[in-house]
Simulated assay, not measured.
Amino acid sequence: MTDKHISSQFDNELNQVSSHVLELGGMVEMQIRQAMYALSEFNIEVADQVQDTEHRVNALELEIDRELSNIIARRQPTAIDLRLLLAISKTTANLERVGDEAAKIARMVKRIIDSGKARVLPAGELRMAADLAAQQLRKALDAFARLSADDAVAIIKDDDHVDREFDGFVRKLITYMMEDPRTISASLDLLTLAKAIERIGDHAKNIAEFVIYIVKGADVRHSGPDGVESAAR
Rank of each mutant, 00 (worst) to 15 (best):
Lys172Trp: 03
Gln135Pro: 02
Leu141His: 04
Glu96Cys: 06
Leu60Arg: 03
Asp163Asn: 03
Val46Glu: 05
Val170Glu: 00
Asn58Asp: 11
Ala152Gln: 04
Arg233Ala: 06
Gln34Gly: 06
Gly227Thr: 07
Ser8His: 02
Val162Pro: 00
Glu23Ile: 03
Asp219Gly: 11
Tyr176Asn: 09
Glu198Ala: 00
Ser185His: 14
Val17Ser: 08
Met108Tyr: 10
Arg127Cys: 06
Ser69Ile: 06
Ala59Ile: 08
Val57Tyr: 03
Val153Ser: 00
Glu61Trp: 03
Val28Ala: 15
Ile112Glu: 05
Arg233Lys: 10
Arg83Val: 13
His203Phe: 07
Ile44Lys: 13
Asp142Gln: 04
Val50Arg: 13
Tyr213Gly: 04
Ala196His: 14
Val120Arg: 15
Val46Lys: 02
Gly227Leu: 06
Arg119Thr: 00
Ala87Thr: 08
Leu141Met: 02
Phe210Cys: 01
Thr91Val: 15
Ile112Arg: 10
Tyr176Ser: 09
Ala204Met: 02
Ala130Cys: 01
Val98Pro: 04
Glu209Val: 08
Leu24Glu: 01
Thr92Ile: 00
Arg75Met: 08
His55Gln: 08
Asp160Met: 11
Glu41Leu: 11
Val220Asp: 02
Phe144Arg: 01
Ala204Pro: 00
Val120Gly: 00
Arg127Ser: 12
Tyr37His: 13
Ala152Arg: 02
Val109Lys: 08
Leu191Asn: 12
Asp167Pro: 08
Leu39Phe: 09
Asn43Thr: 02
Ser69Ala: 03
Met30Gln: 15
Ala143Arg: 01
Val17Phe: 04
Val215Asn: 06
Ala143Ser: 04
Ser148Ala: 01
Thr92Leu: 01
Val228Phe: 07
Ser8Trp: 00
Gln34Lys: 09
Leu82His: 05
Arg56Asp: 12
Ala130Arg: 01
Gly224Val: 09
Arg171Ile: 04
Ala93Gln: 07
Lys110Leu: 12
Met27His: 10
Ala123Ile: 03
Asp167Phe: 04
Glu61Phe: 10
His161Thr: 12
Ala186Val: 04
Val98Leu: 06
Glu165Val: 00
Arg66Ala: 10
Ala103Ile: 09
Ile88Glu: 15
Asp142Glu: 01
Gln31Phe: 11
Arg127Tyr: 12
Asp3His: 06
Met30Pro: 13
Val57His: 01
Ser69Arg: 04
His55Arg: 11
Ser115Thr: 06
Glu229Gly: 02
Leu190Ala: 11
Gln9Arg: 07
Ala232Asp: 02
Glu209Tyr: 10
Ile155Met: 02
Arg66Asn: 09
Val228Leu: 05
Gly217Pro: 15
Ala102His: 09
Arg111Glu: 14
Lys157Pro: 03
Val215Ile: 08
His203Tyr: 15
Leu147Cys: 07
Met108Gln: 14
Pro181Glu: 05
Ile88Leu: 15
Val162Gln: 00
Ile32Thr: 01
Leu173Thr: 03
Ala35Pro: 15
